[in-house]
Every structure is written in structure tokens, then in C-alpha cells.
Design a protein around this nucleic acid. Structure first.
Lengths: 331, 331
DNA sequence: ATTTGGTTTGCACAGCTGTGCAATGGAGTT
DNA sequence: AACTCCATTGCACAGCTGTGCAAACCAAAT
């Protein structure tokens, strides 16, 4: 219909008022008489006028744009996280610009810088998987950061760190496997050893050490389902391992399915498995995975509060409590 | 570090050149001497300057923003779609603004209008689940639309429709169940009866009719995993049903898991199940679901082409071929 | 040395908005 | 009727960019 976008001046001309009146009509809390407001609204409706948020944002310094950057976006927990976060942002009138760090060949730096060029108010890093480079760029730009399950590589002025209680999580998993009578356990970490993942594994190992149980570590491969499967194939090839703790549900499910359906193990009779996250599909009856839950709603709530907070406030640190969810993958 | 964003004038002052020179340095294909370019670059680096894309977009009419709107964002296929699409967009220097239609209480109209206010170049509707209202708003605004597995409610000027070959998919599923010897089958549609979902079901029913096989339809509940589970509980309560076709993998997995683990059915011995989509997790050994594949890469490629196409081009219609992926859920 | 040609540069404008400031108008009070 | 006061309105500016146009510059050719 309209090849060019209609601007406030067009509406003003049509309604026979000044452009200021139009602007004030669409600005909450501005002073406009009821009569002109109606005239303006009628003209706007007729012409299909919409405020140009680019211009508004340009003028004000405040932006409604939030950058959400992550990797492995279709993994069970991350996708649930995106779903919850985008809904929450929308509810608070914030727009979500999604950046996928997946492109191996493309320059990651470029994607993040382009995001910054839109003057986003905050950048949310969905998981620890994002490289340090990303944090560095945002920090240098003075953009507020929200880091989820991640530490900073260096001192960053404005950052909110949110982390599920890794130490408690690892300890809970260890105690449960000990209680199940496991004598020879493995911990699955993958090559992507984020701070949080490492902390979970270390707490697990420390607790196992205290009980004198040997722990084998799996540190190869990218952080994905297939890596969990590969780990199971290798670790379970010779008998011995009777318990597995994976630092994410994705890894756990790869191992669980491979053990059950490919290697012929009975879970939990022959082998106990515990994951971390409590992704929605972990509760499906096809998996029935016992896992350490980091509450998605608590995580989202904390993220939102960090995003809505003052742009220049000091750095903060929040911890999300975890809880062992008992299902059928542990004896 | 910098409370206010640094602008091109700041860089110009620092480098001792005009603001135009700075602008040209950051505009590809503009005429700048190598000497001034270096001076500008040095000053920019020093001050941490970044082009303000809001202002650039405001000035040019061309935008790099693409609105991606969907519902049920963490469902198995949609999340894979978002992953693939966001990566592809990023590779072509396009930014992805994600809009989640999940908020039940919030006004959907508001979210979409806010999106339009950012002057996005295109709006992509991820699935047929988005209400007609959304299409109407975009069309009235003159924004180009990309509809995935969806028809338009009325005549829309600029729209690209992309649809997996529903008719063939439904037919393939029917033939396969017939070949498996099913005598009494059900089709799972849910209450969210999109055009594409209905088309799949209708093609299935038509083909079944031709062979004289009775078909029960399930048309209740929202489109999610639990609905598939509910359907299984009800339909399989009394003996008879020996084959199920679900119009999405999500429904199929709900039914499959419930039948297997809750109701004690052997799949495929007692019951054959076919889904639609071929979501990544359908291939997991815990599910091993036979399904009609709509190739994710083909779908993403088609979406990208539509997005990259001319904004004022005529409407187009693309069909994505489907293929039956044989796994272990059909006898 | 002068002309010619092409490249580089700066000015000024357009793109669209929100808002301070002064002027205007209208309503209420004495 | 005159005055006071407050809500409303319009002007002009700021916010940051890309680019047409003319001026300036530089190098090469005559």
C-alpha cells in the first residue's frame, strides 16, 4: 500500500496540527488536549502511522533492545531458556535480538559488534559457551552484561553474574550415586570446559574422593548429545563403570540412550546416570532422567531483574539454588 | 568507560578531519584516501567508536532487521528451526528480532506492532500457529511477510509462502501404515488446526478411505507433547487402534512415549506410529520414530531466499519436498 | 608552466523523533 | 469587564548518520 513509511509530519498535515502534537500524542505522559488527540489518532489510523522506534531510540539514550547471544540454540535446556526469556522480555516491553554463535566460519567478533552497533541496552550471554572475546568486546564498549553460568575473563565494570549453585549440584549428584552403591564412576564434561561445568565436575570429584570412589573424567568432544553417546561407547566398552554424572542433561541423555538401546545396559540396574539442568525432555518417560534442577523460572526471573536494573549500577552476583530431582535413572 | 556513546563527530575532531570523512571510512564503496582512512581508523580504535546502526537505518530506507515470530519456541522442531535460521541470517549480515507469542495475558497485537515500529525489512512467521491477526497487521503495514506452513487469511500484497508438501506427506504416512497392515488407525491433529496440519490430516484420511480403513480423528487440546500423551491415553484405553499418524513429531512423541512406557504397548509390534517433521530428537534411539521429513536445511534455505529477495517483489509460493524416514516405530 | 583530468574533502541537507521554551488561548475569579 | 493562572501548542534544536554537490587538491600530460 504505502511504499514509503508514513511519518509524524504526514499525520500532522492530515490532522491539521503541528508535528509536535503528533509526537506528544504518542508519548505517554505528554500534554495534549483530548480534542487534538482524537484528531491525531483518527489521522494516524487512516494513514497507518506507527512511531519510528529507530528515531525515538536515537533521540533518547534509552533503548528497548536486548541482545541475547548463545550457542547450541536447539539444545534441550537452551531452547527452553530462550522460550522463557523471550516471553518474559516481551512482557516487559523489551525487544530481543538473538545472536547465534554457531557459524564456525563467520567471524564471531563481527556478529557481536554488529549487535553493539544497535545500541542494545544489555547483552545476555545464555551460557558459558560464549568465548571470552565476546565478553571483552561488550565490556570495552561499556555495555552492561548479564552472564549466565559464566565467569568473567577479567575485571568488567558492569556485569551481572547468575550462576546455578554448581558446588551443591555436584555434591548432590555424588552423594546420590554413593547412596546407590556405585563403586566406579565417570564424570562427563566434554572439551568445552566452562567455569560452571568445571565447578560441577570438581565438586562431584571432591565429594567422591571423600568416600574413596575412583572417578574417570571424560573431557573430549564438543558439548552435544553425540559426545555423551561417544563417551558411553568408550567408557562402557570394558566392564567396570557403574555410575555416570554428566554436567548437562544433553550429555546425560546421549550417554543414557546409547547405554540403554545400543549397548544393552539396563538403567538403573547395571548403571546409574545423573544429569544437570532438568530440561523439559529429561522428564519424558522415554528418558526418566534423574537430574540436578536449576529452576528455569528462577533463572529467567533473575535474568530479567538484571536486565531491567540500572544500566550503570555496580556488578552483582546471584546464585540460583539447585535441587536433585529423583527419577528412574538411578538405583 | 564511556558513559555517552562516542559519535562520528567525536572521531572526526580527534582525527582532524570532517565528519563526512569518518562516515565514508565506515561506508563500503565510498571514496576516501588511504591516508585519512588510517587516521580515522586510529582515532576510532582509540575512542572505541562504533557506527550507530539506528541512525544509519533511519537515514537509509533499507533495514537489516528481520522479525522472527513464533509460538511454542522450545518445541523440538521449532527450536531447531530457530537455531538454523538465526545462524543463516547472521551469516548474511541480518539481525534477528525474536518475538514470542506465548504470553497469554499480554496483547499479541502489541508485540507485533512494536516489532513493526522498528521498521523490520521482513517478518517471518515460523509456523502456522500465529493467529490471523498477526498477518493482518503486517499486511496493513506493507511489510513483507514470509509464511511458513501457513496460508493467508485474505489477499496480501507481498508474501512468500513456504510449505512442506503436506498432501504427499499425509499420503506417504497412510501408505506406510497400510503396508504395515493397520486396520484401525487414528490421526492426531489437536485443536490448533492450522492449514498445513489440516492438509496433512486430510491427505492421510483420503488415502485411507481409498483403502477402506477407518480413521479416528483427535482434535482436542493445544498443540504440544501432553496433548499427544492425552490422546494416547484415551484412544488406546479400549483395544482396537493399531496405527497412529500425528501431524507433528511433538504430538507423535507424546503418544509414542505414553503408549510404550505408561500403557505397556509394544511399538511397533502392537502399534505403529508415524510423525511429521523429523525433529532432531526423533532420531534418538530412545524414540526411533518413523516420520515424514521436511528437510530443515531446505526450509531454511527457502526462508533465507525469501527474506533476501526484493521487498516489493510479487508474492511467491515455494513447496518443500518431503520424504518418509523409516525408523523403528512402524512394523 | 599551464591545462586537464580525476580523486578527495567539506558543507549542507534529509531522515524522524522528543522536548525546552515562549507564546497562545481559554476558563475561572473578583 | 479585567485579571490571573494553567493547559495547550508551535518553533526550533538536538540526536547521528549517508550522500549530492561544488570546491579543492594532486598528479600527469602537453
Amino acid at each position: 500500500m504505502n511504499d514509503k513509511f508514513v511519518s509524524a509530519s504526514d499525520v500532522a498535515k492530515r490532522a491539521g496540527v503541528s508535528r509536535s502534537a503528533v509526537s506528544r500524542t504518542f508519548t505517554t505522559g505528554a500534554s495534549v488536549s483530548e480534542k487534538t488527540r482524537r484528531k491525531v489518532m483518527a489521522a494516524a489510523e487512516e494513514l497507518g502511522y506507527k512511531v519510528n522506534l529507530l528515531a525515538r531510540t536515537l533521540h533518547m539514550s534509552r533503548s528497548d533492545l536486548v541482545g541475547v547471544v548463545g550457542k547450541n540454540l536447539s539444545s534441550p535446556y537452551i531452547s527452553a531458556q530462550i522460550d522463557a526469556l523471550s516471553a518474559a522480555l516481551s512482557k516487559h516491553d523489551l525487544q530481543c535480538i538473538l545472536v547465534n554463535l554457531a557459524q564456525v566460519d563467520g567471524d564471531i567478533t563481527k556478529s557481536v559488534e554488529r549487535l553493539l552497533e544497535y545500541r542494545v541496552r544489555t547483552v545476555v550471554l545464555l551460557s558459558g559457551a560464549a568465548p571470552d572475546e565476546v565478553v571483552r568486546i561488550c565490556a570495552a564498549n561499556g555495555t552492561r552484561l548479564v552472564l549466565i553460568n559464566r565467569t568473567m575473563p577479567a575485571a568488567v565494570a558492569h556485569a551481572d553474574m547468575i550462576e546455578a549453585d554448581s558446588a551443591t549440584g555436584g555434591r548432590l549428584a555424588a552423594r546420590r550415586l554413593i547412596q546407590a552403591g556405585c563403586q566406579n564412576v565417570a564424570v562427563l564434561v566434554s572439551a568445552s570446559r566452562t567455569h560452571a561445568k568445571r565447578a560441577r565436575a570438581e565438586a562431584f570429584i571432591a565429594e567422591m574422593d571423600r568416600s574413596g570412589v575412583a572417578v574417570t573424567q571424560w573431557r573430549e568432544g564438543p558439548h552435544c548429545y553425540e559426545t555423551g553417546a561417544d563417551a558411553a561407547r568408550t567408557l562402557l566398552a570394558r566392564p567396570g563403570i557403574d555410575g555416570i554424572f554428566a554436567v548437562s542433561d544433553e550429555l546425560a541423555l546421549g550417554a543414557l540412550n546409547t547405554a540403554r538401546h545400543e549397548l544393552g545396559f539396563s538403567v538403573p540396574e547395571d548403571l546409574s546416570i545423573i544429569g544437570f539442568d532438568d530440561a523439559p525432555i529429561s522428564g519424558w518417560s522415554s528418558h526418566d532422567l534423574t537430574t540436578v534442577r536449576q529452576s528455569l523460572s528462577a533463572l529467567t526471573e533473575a535474568t530479567l531483574q538484571a536486565v531491567m536494573g540500572p544500566a550503570n549500577g555496580p556488578s552483582s552476583r546471584r546464585s540460583i539454588p539447585v535441587k536433585l530431582v529423583e527419577r528412574g535413572s538411578v538405583r
